[in-house]
């Protein structure tokens, strides 16, 4: 049997200069349920989809508060996220203690990024298996960062991580202009939930049980809305299920439903299919590359 020899640890480069263990860690994020984040001029919103292991089990927490001005949403290995968020909390506390000022978002993000980088350059430890969206409001305004196990951090206007997050990113890209313009926190949350809704798989809906929302911004401390509290935001959505699935409902029950909605849903369905196709491409690419290595090994 052929084997990719270059993916056993994070201290071995493949002949093409890739680090497979780190790339696999990025895959772990996609196993987790989705989280989205977006910013306006004054606020940052995080929205996440919670999962429960079984019917009677509780839902895994997806948004963690770091300080009054900062919080994170996670996708991937939750225990790893707890390690990182505990570290961030320590950083935030010592910033307050030593400098008497809240920790800046960029400093916070870089501190965990450097921590994650160490795990990709030394033998014996594994890269973190979690992606984070870090939302913060500091003296330089509202910021949203995406953290990856590779140690990369980038600042975004809107980001989505986790399962089927590409659909969420597509929504954010399409509505970027209105998101950046808006002064209303409510509108920002609705956009966040719409993006999250697009990542839903069939037969799942956003409910007050599986949805988590948080807001931080000018004159408002970091606040998480869970359970009953999140219902007020769900009530503001036109629908709590994915547009792709609704297209099916329309055909079955209500053919006279106004033409526009149907058209809209079809286009989204198409977009979704192309996305899936492109995802498949990516998947192929990922498996292809090691195959190349393997083929050359044979020679």
């Amino acid at each position: 049997m052929f084997r990719n020899n270059y993916d056993n640890d994070s201290v071995t480069y493949s002949p093409t200069g890739r680090l497979f263990q780190v790339e696999y860690a990025l895959e772990a994020i996609k196993q987790g349920s989705a989280a989205v984040g977006l910013v306006s001029k004054s606020h940052v919103v995080l929205a996440a989809l919670k999962r429960n292991a079984e019917e009677l089990g509780s839902y895994q927490k997806k948004i963690i508060k770091i300080d009054d001005h900062m919080g994170v949403a996670l996708a991937g290995l939750a225990p790893d996220a707890r390690v990182l968020s505990n570290f961030l909390r320590k950083q935030a506390m010592s910033s307050k203690m030593i400098y008497n000022r809240p920790l800046s978002t960029s400093k916070a993000v870089l501190s965990i990024a450097d921590k994650a980088q160490e795990n990709t350059q030394s033998y014996g430890s594994r890269p973190y298996g979690v992606g984070l969206l870090i939302a913060g409001y500091d003296e330089t305004g509202a910021h949203l960062y995406e953290f990856q196990p590779s140690g990369s951090v980038l600042e975004y206007y809107g980001a989505a991580i986790g399962a089927r997050s590409q659909a969420g990113r597509t929504y954010l890209e399409r509505n970027l202009d209105t998101i950046l313009e808006t002064d209303s926190v409510e509108e920002l949350i609705v956009h966040g939930l719409n993006a999250l809704r697009d990542t839903l798989s069939q037969d799942v809906e956003l409910t007050f049980k599986n949805t988590s929302v948080s807001v931080v911004g000018k004159d408002s401390d970091f606040k998480i809305y869970d359970d009953e509290e999140v219902q007020q935001w769900l009530d503001k959505l036109d629908s709590v299920s994915n547009a792709r699935n609704r297209a099916g409902d329309d055909d079955a029950d209500d053919n006279n439903e106004n033409q526009e909605t149907t058209e809209e849903t079809t286009t989204t369905t198409e977009a979704a299919t192309t996305e899936e196709a492109s995802n498949d491409d990516n998947a192929n690419e990922a498996t292809d590359a090691p195959a190349e290595d393997r083929m050359e090994t044979d020679e």
């Binding site: 600042e155 975004y156 990113r169 970027l176």
Partner: peptide
């Protein structure tokens, strides 16, 4: 790589 990235940062 994405138009969601904040220009002038990173």
């Amino acid at each position: 790589n994405s138009k969601l990235l904040v220009p002038g940062k990173n």
